[in-house]
Design a protein around this nucleic acid. Sequence first.
DNA 1: TAGCCTACCAAGCAAATGCTTGGTAGGCAG
DNA 2: CTGCCTACCAAGCATTTGCTTGGTAGGCTA
Lengths: 206, 206
Amino acid sequence: MPESGARSRNGGGTTTSGARRTELLAIAARLFADKGFRNTTVRDIADAAGIQSGSLYHHFDSKESMVDEILSVFQTELFARYEEILGSDDDARSKLERAFRVSFEAIENNPAEVAIFQNEADYLGTFPRFGYLADRNAQSRQVWVTLLEEGVATGMLRDDLDVTLTYRFIRDTVWVAVRWYRPGGGLTHTDVADQYVRILLDGIAK
Amino acid sequence: MPESGARSRNGGGTTTSGARRTELLAIAARLFADKGFRNTTVRDIADAAGIQSGSLYHHFDSKESMVDEILSVFQTELFARYEEILGSDDDARSKLERAFRVSFEAIENNPAEVAIFQNEADYLGTFPRFGYLADRNAQSRQVWVTLLEEGVATGMLRDDLDVTLTYRFIRDTVWVAVRWYRPGGGLTHTDVADQYVRILLDGIAK
DNA sequence: TAGCCTACCAAGCAAATGCTTGGTAGGCAG
DNA sequence: CTGCCTACCAAGCATTTGCTTGGTAGGCTA
């Protein structure tokens, strides 16, 4: 019984596109971000969407494939931006600042995706299916380390900088902000990026 | 049937002291830190301890009371140190540095407890029993904000500093290090504290 | 109007979960 | 020797979990 020409169905019988699908993914992303992946049940997602839990399996193979799609789509977009910065011919300082801004933009526009990656990457990474998470991690490291080394080489950053430690410092500082930053609050993501760049580059001492 | 003079039993029949108890708490803390509280089952804990899951209930009322004891004991110790610093008559810079050092010491000596607090405080805080977590959070904020304001007042820190944002910056940066810092690796907690203080105070620019 | 499509429901299953119950074994004090 | 203590086991219970199954209803298209 081979599949005929259905354009939005795969072999397993679940859909691979459609507005409702996208909507369900957004609902799931929010819950995964708020309660954690393992602690969000398919019934939680279904309730939030106003349908029965079984109906989710019309759209998706499994709960796992939902996070998978959420994370991979987001990361593809984010890393395209990083690569664009790396390839540009701005000076080292501008590149660093733009990397900060792109990151805080992601927190502004995709807080759920950022939170899920922060909280669940370690766990999900233990499954072969999510091997790309480790690759993205390495890629992110490569981006920041390259920018920092360029900064040191051009004399913009301190010569005695421990680039690896500084990378971790920046990575942690930037992404953890997703825990408290709320779009529409008193601070815009641009404000935060500006202040964080300033603290990082110049410090808080007089 | 009133309780007679048993010294290490409470009304419910569970123990309140003992070496085995402490051991079980340490095992549970490790698992809670690694897999999260909700994703650690009582059978996980029992397996790691080499006993049956039911046997845990000889020592503890519930899984919840295990985290409770883990967190409250740890925080009592940690905050005693912060208060000692606040009350000392060091200058503002020394106090800030000492607060950093105390924090990284906690990461060195109690990584599991730090990780649990970082990851589960939001969730646990929704239960009345864990109301003290929010209090500790406010107390921590008070400590750092006081130190920062003292720094600004004495002319050690920039006048234009956004103290609240800086507090969040420091808090996030320090505690998130528990995710990658491993005791016994190339860096000691003192190394990390030194470098982080340096970056924070003086920045990474030349 | 026949045929296939999307989107869902209602019911249920096997496994895993936190916790309870009744009981056992060894040790130490009087 | 008696009695109470600590530390555990074996079995099971009610609930929750991810996922499956068989079916329905409305819409689009040839």
